[in-house]
Design a protein around this nucleic acid. Structure first.
Length: 466
RNA sequence: GGCGACGUAGCCAAGUGGUAAGGCAAGGGUCUGCAAAACCCUCAUUCGUCGGUUCGAUCCCGACCGUCGCCUCCA
């Protein structure tokens, strides 16, 4: 039974989330336009969408998640032409990089990634339905949506639409619209641009129609969740609503979830400002994928995230704390002490409760992480007092694992020590035993240079990779 | 001009009508041959400013100051 509450842009309120079909949530996420490599801001949006999916599953729901890949669009056409290749050749590498980035950041794959160009017939059908219901008009071979035919237009963005005159900035020279607020469903063919021969004439789809067509094809005319970043609320999502509800007469999406933007060092990310970051860039600069994941996850999705060098350093230290805790638990768990679980089980239970309560509150990852660190401190204190038996350690470890099904930030270090490294550690131990500290320090430095950090604890030497 | 968001310690960031989670950094300590690492402790009488409502406000209302976003392609 879920008591997850999500902020719904449609009502501007937090609402209790329950799926239309009990136990099965359906979500559509606005995905990348593959005219370039995805940047860190795009990835933030995809990351919290995945977090939402994981959390729904964590609560026992089945989730069907669909994310579009937009592979036909003005910038793609422009840049492909510039590169002298067709749009398919042009978008292919960017699509591949997108998927690689998801894997690197531990963003789980959606169930489907439909491409716009694979769904032209569905879009045509949708436009024809809109035509039959009187929502469209044609001008110069293009088909437009006439917003005055849909009384509820504007309900998502809650933008009191300004009179036509104030929208003089809208460029109207290319396509002939009756009203500047109307938007194009199907664009008439232009010389040198890719086009499809259809019942609507030769041309290509407008920007918004793909999402309506593909979302309804895979998730139904009404589905549970639609995600994206705040900049898509208007006009993209508003127009999706118009197209879909204009065609079906039914509510399109029950929960519209929008995430805030990421800024870099307090500035909007842009190529011209030189602060446009991609995942491979950041990794090249020495950050690990997990550090980046943590930095993106630590700030709840509806809060603007200031992505900085400093935030990555913070993430690194915070993760080290979590990893050390996991190692400590594993060591205790391996012990032979047969006491029954006591303090540990209690701490673990309290943690899982607080963790879930945090995420239930509109995916408050900051609160959930706060609960995690509180558990770590409490368990460490108890362990220092010898109150953590192996059974306790196993309970705590299980709780950490359980939370990590959603967070996925714990290091999975399965690397086995090379014989060489092992030999050096052994040699250092014997040097220390014969109090040859010069030799032992030399070996320690050598290992450090190899990326192996030694920790001399009361239980002996522990090592980990830097 | 229209719509909206935000302003909490050095930095990041939760939060509640009853007196401020957590992380990083910093300082102190434990441990150690020395270190490092690890662990523990400390660290905002105060939540942009000024008023109002209230027994009581950081949280509610109003004004102001400041930052930012959308209204045009955009995650």
């Amino acid at each position: 039974m879920s008591d997850l509450r999500l902020f719904n842009t449609l009502t501007r309120k937090q609402e209790l989330f329950t799926p239309l079909e009990p136990g099965h949530a359906r979500m559509y996420c606005c995905g990348p336009t593959v005219y370039n490599v995805v940047h860190i801001g795009n990835l933030r949006t995809f990351l919290w969408a995945d977090l939402l999916r994981r959390f729904l599953e964590w609560k026992g729901m089945k989730v069907t998640m669909v994310m579009n890949v937009t592979d036909i669009e003005d910038k793609i056409i422009r840049d492909a032409a510039k590169a002298g290749v067709d749009i398919f050749t042009f978008t292919k590498p960017f699509t591949e990089i997108f998927f690689e980035n998801l894997d690197t950041l531990r963003i789980r794959r959606a169930d489907r990634y439909p491409k716009a160009t694979d769904h032209i017939p569905e879009m045509i059908d949708l436009v024809k339905t809109l035509e039959a219901r009187g929502h469209t008009y044609e001008a110069d071979g293009s088909t437009y949506f006439r917003i005055s035919t849909l009384p509820g237009y504007g309900k998502l963005s809650q933008v009191e639409l300004a009179p036509e005159s104030s929208l003089s900035r809208v460029e109207n020279d290319e396509y002939e619209k009756e009203d500047a607020r109307d938007f194009v469903l199907w664009k008439a063919k232009k010389e040198g641009e890719p086009s499809w021969k259809t019942e609507l004439g030769d041309g290509r789809p407008g920007w918004h129609i793909e999402c309506s067509a593909m979302a309804m094809k895979y998730l139904g005319e009404t589905f549970d969740i639609h995600t994206g970043a705040v900049d898509l609320i208007f006009p993209h999502h508003e127009n999706e609503v118009a197209q879909s509800e204009g065609a079906t007469g039914k509510p399109f999406v029950r929960f519209w979830i929008h995430g805030e933007h990421l800024v870099v060092e307090d500035a909007k990310m842009s190529k011209s400002a030189g602060n446009f970051f991609t995942l491979p860039d950041l990794i090249k600069q020495g950050s690990s994928a997990l550090e980046i994941r943590y930095a993106l996850l630590a700030v709840p999705h509806r809060t603007k995230l200031n992505f900085t060098k400093h935030s990555l350093e913070d993430a690194k230290s915070a993760l080290a704390r979590i990893d050390s805790f996991a190692i400590r638990l594993d060591e205790i768990a391996a012990g032979s002490d047969a006491r029954p679980a006591a303090r540990g089980a209690e701490i673990a239970q309290k943690f899982l409760l607080e963790f879930e309560e945090g995420l239930d509150d509109d995916l408050n990852t900051a609160a959930a992480l706060g609960a995690l660190f509180t558990m770590i401190r409490e368990a460490n204190t108890a362990a220092d007092k010898g109150e953590i038996a192996p059974a306790d350690a196993r309970d705590l470890r299980a709780a950490l694992e359980r939370a990590d099904l959603v967070l996925d930030i714990v290091k999975r270090d399965t690397v086995v020590l090379d014989a060489d490294i092992e030999a050096k550690i052994e040699a250092r131990n014997s040097a220390r035993q014969r109090r040859d500290f010069k030799e032992s320090d030399r070996l320690r430095d050598e290992l450090l240079a190899m990326g192996i950090v030694l920790e001399d604890t009361a239980q002996g030497v522990r090592w980990r990779r830097k």
